[in-house]
Computed example of a mutant assay.
Amino acid sequence: MSRTYRIKSVQVMPVTLEQAWKFFSDPNNLQHITPKNMGFTVKSEAHGDRIYPGQIIEYSLKPMLGIKVYWMTEITHVEENRFFVDEQRFGPYSLWHHQHHFKEIPGGVEMTDIVHYRIPLGWLGDLANSLFVRRKLDKLFKYRTEIIPRCLY
Rank of each mutant, 00 (worst) to 15 (best):
E104F: 00
E110K: 08
P120A: 02
P92S: 07
I105W: 13
T73H: 09
L121M: 15
I119A: 07
Y117N: 01
H77D: 14
V69R: 12
L121W: 15
M64I: 10
T73K: 07
H116T: 13
N81K: 15
I114P: 02
M64K: 09
E104Y: 03
V78S: 06
H116C: 14
Y93S: 04
G66M: 11
R89V: 08
M111H: 14
F83Q: 07
G107Q: 12
H97N: 13
E110R: 05
W71L: 01
E104A: 14
G91L: 06
W123C: 15
T112W: 06
R89H: 06
G107V: 10
V78K: 04
P106A: 02
E79R: 12
T112V: 14
R89S: 01
G91V: 08
N81Y: 15
V78G: 05
Q88I: 03
L95I: 10
P120R: 04
R118E: 15
L65Y: 12
E80F: 00
N81D: 13
R82A: 10
L124H: 03
I114E: 15
P106Q: 01
Q99A: 13
L65E: 09
G107E: 13
P120F: 06
H97G: 00
S94M: 07
D113C: 13
F83D: 00
I67S: 01
G66W: 09
W96R: 07
S94V: 02
E80D: 15
L121H: 09
E80S: 14
I67R: 11
D113M: 14
E80W: 03
I114H: 05
P106D: 09
D86N: 00
M111N: 12
I75S: 10
E80H: 07
M111D: 05
Y93W: 01
E104W: 03
E79N: 11
E79M: 08
D113F: 14
V85P: 05
E80Q: 10
D86W: 01
V78M: 08
P92Y: 06
H77P: 03
D86C: 02
P106E: 08
P106C: 04
E87W: 01
G107F: 11
E110P: 00
E110N: 04
I105C: 13
Q99L: 13
D86Y: 00
H77Q: 15
I75G: 12
Q88T: 02
Y70V: 00
G66K: 12
G108C: 04
V109E: 00
V78I: 11
H98R: 06
F90C: 07
G91F: 07
G108M: 03
Q99C: 13
G91H: 06
F102N: 00
K103Q: 15
G122P: 03
M111A: 12
H97S: 07
Y70W: 03
I67G: 01
T112K: 07
Y93I: 03
E110Y: 07
F102K: 02
I105Y: 12
V115A: 13
G91N: 08
F84H: 08
